[in-house]
Computed example of a mutant assay.
Amino acid sequence: MPPAKSMTHSVESTNLADLLERILDKGVVVAGDISIKLVEVELLTIQLRLVICSVDKARELGLDWWNHTGRPDRLASERNAALEAMDERLGRIEQALGAVVAAPFERGSTAHE
């Protein structure tokens, strides 16, 4: 009688720790969109982007938002500066628009003569 042969697999088994280490080292991106429509009218769209990786890999990719969350005073001052610049620009646009609207009346309109 021939000796019994054990079955061998060609795919190497990976345990959970190895899999997690590989994911954190290389990184995984999960992306998806959810759309809610009613009678062909889009009511809500949610775009999901999930990155799973180690902190070192995230820094390599330029994802370091946690370095900026501890400085609310700096973020607030940057936001205020941006709002002031927008307010200034809006003032210039309003002045230019006022000049354009007032121009026909200053020259004397002949439209209703």
Rank of each mutant, 00 (worst) to 15 (best):
P104Q: 14
Q95D: 15
L24H: 01
S13G: 02
S77N: 12
F105L: 14
S77G: 05
P104V: 14
L48S: 08
I23G: 01
A85H: 05
K26F: 08
Q95E: 15
E94G: 02
A85G: 04
A76W: 07
V100M: 15
L83V: 09
G91K: 12
L20P: 00
R92Q: 15
E12W: 00
M1G: 10
E78H: 07
E78S: 09
V29Y: 03
G108I: 03
A103Q: 15
K26H: 12
R74T: 09
K37A: 04
P72K: 09
L20Q: 09
L63Y: 08
A102S: 15
I23K: 03
R71L: 07
F105R: 11
A58W: 02
S54W: 01
W65R: 10
P2V: 02
E21H: 04
A82G: 02
A17M: 03
S77A: 15
D18G: 11
L97S: 14
M1Y: 05
I34G: 04
V30A: 11
Q95V: 11
E40S: 12
E78C: 06
E21W: 01
S77W: 05
L19G: 05
P3N: 05
I46Q: 10
E12M: 02
V101G: 04
Q47H: 12
G32H: 02
R22L: 09
E60N: 06
D33E: 09
E60P: 00
P3V: 03
K5I: 08
I34P: 00
L19C: 06
H112V: 02
E12T: 03
I93S: 11
R49H: 12
H68M: 07
A111E: 13
P72Q: 08
K37F: 01
L83R: 07
A102Y: 04
V51M: 09
A103S: 15
P104R: 14
E12C: 01
D33W: 00
R74W: 04
A58G: 10
L83A: 11
G32M: 02
E78M: 14
V11A: 04
R92F: 10
H68Q: 12
L24A: 07
R71P: 00
D33Y: 00
K37T: 04
G108V: 03
S77M: 12
R89I: 05
L19W: 03
L63N: 04
T45S: 08
L75K: 06
V55M: 08
A4C: 06
L43F: 08
D56P: 01
N15G: 05
N15T: 02
T8G: 01
L24P: 00
D18S: 07
S54F: 03
A99C: 10
H112Y: 04
W65D: 14
P72N: 08
T14S: 07
R89K: 15
V51K: 06
D18F: 00
W65Q: 12
L61V: 02
E106D: 13
A17Q: 06
L16V: 07
T69I: 13
A111V: 14
A31H: 02
A4K: 12
L48V: 10
G98K: 08
E78Q: 14
C53H: 03
H9E: 06
L75M: 09
S54N: 05
L44F: 12
G70H: 11
V39W: 02
T8P: 00
L44E: 12
S77T: 09
E88K: 12
N15W: 01
N80T: 10
S35G: 01
H9Y: 07
N67A: 13
L97P: 01
K57Y: 03
D87G: 10
I93Q: 15
A103E: 15
V28E: 13
G32N: 06
D87S: 13
A85F: 07
